[in-house]
Amino acid sequence: MRILGIDPGLNTTGYGVVEARGQRLHYQASGTIRIPKGSLPERLKTLFDGVSEVARQAAADVAVVEIVFVNVNPQSTLLLGQARGAAIAALVAQGLPVVEYTALQLKKSIVGYGRASKSQMQEMVTRLLALPGQPGADAADALGLAICHAHAKQGLAALHQATSPSNEGKIDVSSGKLSAAQLRGVRVRGGRLIG
């Protein structure tokens, strides 16, 4: 599965593409889309066009975007929400399903700590993907989102397989939802399934 992570912003939007083959993750591409100063509608169009082009070139199966948190400054939150909306619209226009994770989910998945710093995220993304150098902060967050989704998919697949051995993991768990019957008898200890 090829996963495109997008870290939207009105000045810089990070992107990262990771391919998950079994348990292994393979780096494909990353970078940033720089949005020049101008009116808000012009900046949103630049963002939409940039994300559309990245999505076309990435040939991903799914896109992942960070959920906006409420900032101390409501104006900043509103602007970030508009940037996020433009990015999601571009991804959907390219026919990609979009999955969302909070910053807390992202940081816990990558670093193991929900209040991890940007530099910690960059270091762990570099290690997880065996990169020769650290990506920029925005690109690292985007790659982190892709890794987070790959880990979530692997966990759901393992959970499904543990709860339904007769199906041998053939049911699609892309929605992230399992029925109560599928969860019956499954326990988790220390982040691991223990049947």
Rank of each mutant, 00 (worst) to 15 (best):
A86V: 01
R43L: 11
R56G: 05
A142Y: 06
G95K: 00
A93E: 02
D172W: 03
Q134F: 07
Y15F: 15
A59G: 01
F69G: 08
D141T: 01
P8F: 06
R115P: 09
F48M: 03
G5W: 08
G14M: 07
A63G: 05
S39D: 08
G95H: 05
R43P: 11
I110Q: 02
A59L: 02
R84P: 09
G112D: 12
R115S: 14
V51E: 02
K177H: 14
A142T: 06
L25F: 15
G9Q: 05
A158W: 01
L44C: 12
V62Q: 05
T32D: 07
E19W: 11
A158E: 06
G136W: 04
A150E: 12
L128P: 15
P135Y: 06
S30C: 15
L79K: 13
S52M: 00
I35Y: 14
A130E: 15
T163P: 00
L143P: 09
K37H: 01
Y27M: 10
E19T: 11
A103V: 06
M1Q: 11
R24F: 11
Q82F: 09
G114S: 10
A93D: 06
R189T: 10
P132Q: 08
S30E: 15
V51D: 04
S119Q: 10
V64S: 08
L79E: 10
V98T: 12
A90Y: 00
S166D: 14
G133C: 14
A63M: 03
G9K: 05
K37C: 00
G85E: 08
T77E: 10
Q182H: 12
R192T: 02
P41R: 02
V18S: 15
P74R: 11
A29K: 10
P135G: 04
L96P: 06
Y15D: 06
M1F: 13
K118H: 04
L4I: 10
G114P: 13
V125N: 09
V99N: 09
V17P: 07
S175M: 07
E100S: 11
Y113W: 01
L91T: 04
Q154S: 06
D141V: 01
A59D: 12
T13S: 14
A142C: 04
V186F: 05
G9D: 05
A103M: 01
Q75W: 11
A89R: 01
G185A: 09
R34Y: 07
I171V: 14
L159Q: 03
A55G: 08
Q161T: 13
A87S: 15
V173H: 13
A158V: 03
K170D: 08
L91G: 07
Y15P: 04
L4P: 04
D7P: 00
A86L: 02
V99K: 14
Q94K: 03
V92P: 00
L10G: 04
L106N: 00
G16L: 09
K108L: 15
L78C: 12
A152R: 13
K118G: 08
A83D: 10
A58I: 00
I67Y: 12
Y101E: 05
V17I: 14
I67P: 00
T12E: 09
M1H: 14
